[in-house]
């Protein structure tokens, strides 16, 4: 085991910070670090917080972290902000809102730049979560880039997803759109003291009612009818009904209630076997991604060895060869090699 990993497991903050840096920079040796961490992970609850810019994600994260600390739990936070597509630079400003956890080293707060990735997270986020998990954090909060409609990568990493919806986020047609509103386990109408909050709650409720093809009882030509108008859709996901919670994060209002609902969701994940299922899906996805990246590197290496891409492009332009043949000539030898080995071992 590397010294750095040993120090991290021993609870040294600086080592945790440095491991995350190495992961972010994909420094030589970072893969070994992450592999060594793996066996120490699996104990933290991972909670994602997403929503539009200015919806109050950072402020809510601060209050959640402080409340968990009151309960004696340790907290890790990863907050992601966008990077400039032009210079790669970034201003990471989520830390400014962490006013409730001043000087408390048991809240480990790390700002990350998206480093060009779309989808609301950075490629390093999943591995950084592992580092926090191995360090022994009880709760890990991930705050995404201010999300619009389609930044939904958070579902691949977090077990519970909170979607913040500020009052006045548009009409009921916005609520019909695909994307971010499909991923919330809990919807938080933050800044609930603002005008339009009741209406937003109402519209969200209606939107959730439509799930799985049901007609919610709140919708009717002549007001609510006595007849149960619910049409049952598929029973595929019978478990969790997304909840709506109103908060005023800045004043801490509704935070306790939110935590209760969050605890319910975590309990549901365990009792339904959903957590186990999520983990399997997550690891499957991770393995697929790694294999894809590694195979890609290998193929690039082979491509270079055979004279490089430009060389092949020229031949294709000159009609000497076609793209399919190029691909075959790179991949076939590798495939042959592997098949041979498989045959030998049989």
């Amino acid at each position: 085991m590397s010294d750095l990993v040993a120090e991290l497991l021993a609870g040294k903050h600086r080592a945790l910070a440095r491991v995350i840096t190495k992961i972010e920079n994909h420094e030589p040796g970072y893969r070994e670090l992450v592999s060594q961490l793996h066996e120490h992970t699996g104990t933290a609850d991972v909670i994602g917080i997403t929503g539009s810019p200015g919806s109050g994600k950072s402020t809510l994260v601060d209050k959640l972290a402080a409340t968990y600390r009151e309960q004696g739990l340790t907290v890790g936070v990863i907050a992601i902000d966008p990077s400039s597509p032009f210079t790669g630079g970034a201003v990471l400003g989520d830390r400014i809102r962490m006013g409730s956890n001043i000087g408390d080293m048991d809240v480990f707060f790390r700002s990350m730049s998206a480093r060009g990735t779309l989808g609301g997270l950075s490629t390093a986020t999943t591995d950084a979560v592992k580092a926090l998990d191995a360090f022994g954090k009880d709760k890990i909060l991930i705050e995404t880039v201010g999300a619009g409609q389609n930044e939904i990568d958070i579902v691949k990493t977090a077990e519970s997803v909170l979607v913040l919806v500020p009052p006045g986020s548009g009409d009921d047609v916005q609520m019909l759109k695909a994307g971010i509103l499909e991923i919330g386990d809990i919807f938080v109408v933050n800044k609930a003291d603002l005008e339009g909050s009741d209406r937003t709650v109402q519209e969200l409720r209606e939107m959730l009612g439509y799930r799985e093809g049901r007609v919610p009882s709140t919708v009717g030509h002549h007001g609510t009818s006595d007849v149960d108008a619910t049409i049952e859709g598929s029973d595929a996901d019978d478990g969790w009904e997304p909840e709506i919670v109103e908060t005023v994060a800045e004043r801490g209002e509704g935070v306790d209630e939110l935590l209760d609902v969050l605890a319910d969701h975590q309990a549901y994940l365990d009792s339904s076997g959903r957590r186990e299922q999520q983990r399997r899906q997550r690891y499957a996805e991770e393995i697929r991604t790694l294999i894809r990246e590694d195979a890609n590197k290998l193929l690039v290496e082979e491509l270079e060895a055979q004279g490089g891409l430009d060389n092949f492009v020229q031949q294709v332009v000159d009609r000497e060869i076609d793209p399919y043949t190029v691909s075959d000539s790179i991949v076939e030898p590798i495939a042959d090699c592997l098949r041979e080995r498989r045959d030998e071992s049989e």
């Binding site: 910070a17 990077s83 210079t87 970034a90 400014i96 080293m105 480990f108 707060f109 790390r110």
Partner: peptide
């Protein structure tokens, strides 16, 4: 700094020395 391609974490106003220490350590 951002335009120079750096990642900049801004602390906000009126920070205590211990907050700066916490941020420097955690943000590496």
């Amino acid at each position: 700094f951002r335009d120079a391609g750096f990642e900049v974490i801004y602390s906000g106003l009126h920070r205590a020395p211990e907050e700066i220490v916490q941020a420097t350590v955690q943000e590496d």
